[in-house]
Design a protein around this nucleic acid. Structure first.
Length: 293
DNA sequence: ACAGGCTCCTGCAGGC
DNA sequence: TGCCTGCAGGAGCCTG
């Protein structure tokens, strides 16, 4: 299931492959829940656009697009994906959320179309960008920034760069369990079930603890633990970047050794006590009863 | 404003 | 072996 590190890896892989390419035709299935605005509108908007760059914001993949008249290699192309300035220079954006099972594939035109393919973009290079999503929790949205749409912004803060004070402020006064708060995308954008559990283990905190009652020191352990685990996962994902958007691509993430996630009953890597599982915020939640207090 | 529960959807694991 | 049930989860929506 794609969370911040997986989405980052996909965005980098897609960017590397199709930056500068042009969309000559777009085909969308008619599955209404997959599209935040009408598939016909998305197909029309995307056709003729040049892909200036692809980057990640929270769990969303954002395609920065230039209008039909713009040439590839134009000097207005955004070169640094990390400096996502609010003053967007692109004419339009295509925003992809992978949900649970969404995949973006760059394929040859002759590659057989997989089941559950909901969108196909024909590129000037002869390749195709395909969106495949069996469970259909993914979402696609087109925004024309020249016709009044706002540039996409994740609702929550970026966990890789948020500073100590701002991080603590997110949780102040919240009575909800810290695990639920971590999953709340309007607070932090990009944390899902795996990295919520793993970061709480790193910080030595019980997932049930009330978010607003954590001390400054505990919150700082959590902020740093979360950042470390995300950065580590991005590095591991990075080892398979070149394959990830291909059919067999997810190999890189198997290298990530989970400490608690889906290890119910197995010995804690730190103290050997059996990992416990509870349900919190409707999600399976895993922790070590000794190491997490 | 906040918190918690329900819903969507399909593949897969587990049980008999 | 094969069928059936239930579980997994991101986020939007509804209710309290």
């Amino acid at each position: 299931m794609p969370e911040l590190p997986e989405v980052e890896t996909v965005a980098r892989g897609v960017d590397k492959r199709i930056r500068g390419d042009r969309i000559v035709q777009a085909w969308f299935a008619s599955r209404p829940q997959t599209f935040k605005n009408a598939p016909a509108l998305q197909a029309k908007g995307l056709t003729g656009c040049t892909i200036l760059g692809v980057h990640r914001t929270g769990k969303h993949i954002v395609f920065e697009l230039g209008g039909e008249t713009r040439k590839p290699g134009n000097d207005r192309v955004k070169r640094d994906r990390r400096k996502a300035s609010p003053a967007h220079e692109s004419d339009a954006q295509w925003i992809v959320h992978l949900g649970m099972t969404g995949r973006l594939l760059v394929t040859g035109a002759e590659t057989p179309v997989a089941a559950h393919t909901h969108a196909r973009l024909d590129l000037a290079s002869g390749r195709e960008l395909r969106f495949v999503d069996p469970r259909r929790f993914g979402r696609l949205e087109f925004r024309n920034l020249r016709e009044g749409s706002q540039a996409f912004q994740a609702p929550g803060a970026e966990p890789l760069t948020i500073e100590a004070g701002a991080f603590a402020e997110l949780f102040r006064g919240r009575r909800t369990p810290i695990k639920a708060a971590l999953l709340n995308q309007s607070l932090l954008a990009g944390v899902g079930n795996i990295y919520a559990d793993e970061s709480l283990f790193r910080a030595g905190l019980r997932p049930q603890r009330q978010a607003g009652r954590l001390s400054a020191a505990e919150l700082e352990r959590l902020r740093l633990g979360l950042r470390e685990i995300l950065e580590q996962a991005i590095r591991l994902g990075g080892s398979s970047v070149s394959d990830y958007v291909d059919a067999d691509g997810e190999r890189g993430f198997f290298q990530l050794e989970h400490c608690v996630y889906q290890r119910t009953g197995e010995p804690c890597r730190r103290c050997q006590k059996a990992i416990r599982r509870v349900e919190l915020a409707g999600r399976g939640t895993h922790y070590c009863p000794v190491c997490q207090r």
